[in-house]
């Protein structure tokens, strides 16, 4: 385990998510081949890899959507329950690569759906509007507003989520995931389709989430974004972990460059993500 290599990760942190030798087989296709990954509390881990490398499939194995063919996933020392909603209860929340908000619900309702597993009102409470229902409703509304403020959607609470701008929809998805009160947040390409400015805002938001005590696992294509953001990066290629380590190590690894560019690294093919900060706003996607 190389987690403590990076200075930003304190050695005392405990393992939150522990995936060991996960294999996911679809018929003849082995989408995830023997991947192990750990995420510690208070850490931002990045998962990169070319298209079709199995990142999202691995994600789905971690969130209970798929049952791995073999291997084990433990969360907070417990085996991960086999259903997404139980994984949420255990403290794991996710966003989707292609936004999956509840389009005909308002922003605040979207967030409040996220609180479902943390609230207890039953049908009887609701029908007769018993004190528990009222108390919980008030608290949920309050908390939802806080979360909307937190992600920067102040005042958009009563807007239908489908009417929100694209970047706001991504942020609303994060707020909805945070509403489940997770210990670990899994973000599937949170900056896909965003402009550089929105990307920077997202970066800042993820730092704030980390600072509030959550661990974050991010899938991303945007190299600059991920190397700025993460404490540790794993590069997945053809279903297997190619390299794992601190951003500085991964971004200089010739195998990673080869996986992305398709040829061994030389001076001329060295992508510009190796000089972060030189030219802000220009990522590998633009190159």
């Amino acid at each position: 385990m190389t987690a403590s290599v990076d200075a930003r990760v304190a050695p005392s942190r405990e393992v939150l998510l522990d995936a060991r030798n996960v294999i996911m087989q679809f018929g003849g296709l082995r989408a995830v081949n023997d991947v192990s990954l750990q995420v510690h509390t208070g850490e931002i881990v990045g998962l990169i890899g070319p298209n079709g490398a199995g990142k999202t499939t691995f994600f789905n194995c971690l969130t209970g959507l798929y049952q791995p063919t073999s291997g084990s996933v433990e969360f907070s020392g417990q085996p991960l329950p086999p259903k997404p909603r139980l994984a949420v209860r255990a403290g794991m929340a996710r966003t989707f690569q292609n936004i999956r908000l509840f389009h005909n619900m308002t922003a605040i309702e979207n967030v409040m759906v996220g609180m479902y597993s943390r609230t207890k009102t039953n049908a009887i409470d609701a029908i007769f509007r018993l004190p528990r229902h009222r108390r919980e409703e008030a608290a949920s509304t309050e908390r939802a507003k806080e979360l909307l403020d937190f992600v920067g959607l102040t005042g958009s609470g009563d807007t239908l989520s489908r009417n929100l701008p694209y970047g706001d929809q991504r942020r609303l998805e994060i707020a909805r995931a945070l509403a489940t009160d997770p210990k670990l947040l899994l973000l599937d390409e949170p900056t896909a389709g965003m402009n550089p400015q929105e990307t920077r805002q997202a970066e800042e938001l993820i730092f704030r989430i980390r600072d509030s005590g959550l661990a974050v696992l991010v899938i991303e294509h945007d190299m600059r974004f991920i190397f700025n953001l993460c404490d540790r990066v794993a590069c997945l290629v053809r279903g297997a972990v190619l390299v794992e380590g601190p951003p500085a190590v991964v971004q200089n690894d010739p195998r990673v460059i080869e996986a992305y560019i398709g040829m061994p690294a030389t001076e001329s093919t060295t992508p510009n993500w190796q000089q972060p900060g030189d030219n802000p706003g220009e990522g590998v996607e633009d190159a």
Binding site: T63, L65, K83, P84, R85, V88, R89, A93, R94, F96, R100, L101, F102, H103, N104, M105, E109, M112, V113, G114, M115, Y116, S117, R118, T119, T121, N122, A123, D125, A126, H133, E136, E137, S140, R176, A177, A179, T180
Partner: peptide, 25 residues
């Protein structure tokens, strides 16, 4: 206008996402 009603509408809108947000669909 309760937690349950929101869960219902969430199922109508996107059942898989609802399940992934902890709703017992």
């Amino acid at each position: 206008h309760s937690r349950i009603g929101r869960g219902w509408v969430a199922i109508r809108e996107d059942e898989l996402a609802a399940e992934a947000m902890g709703v017992n669909t």
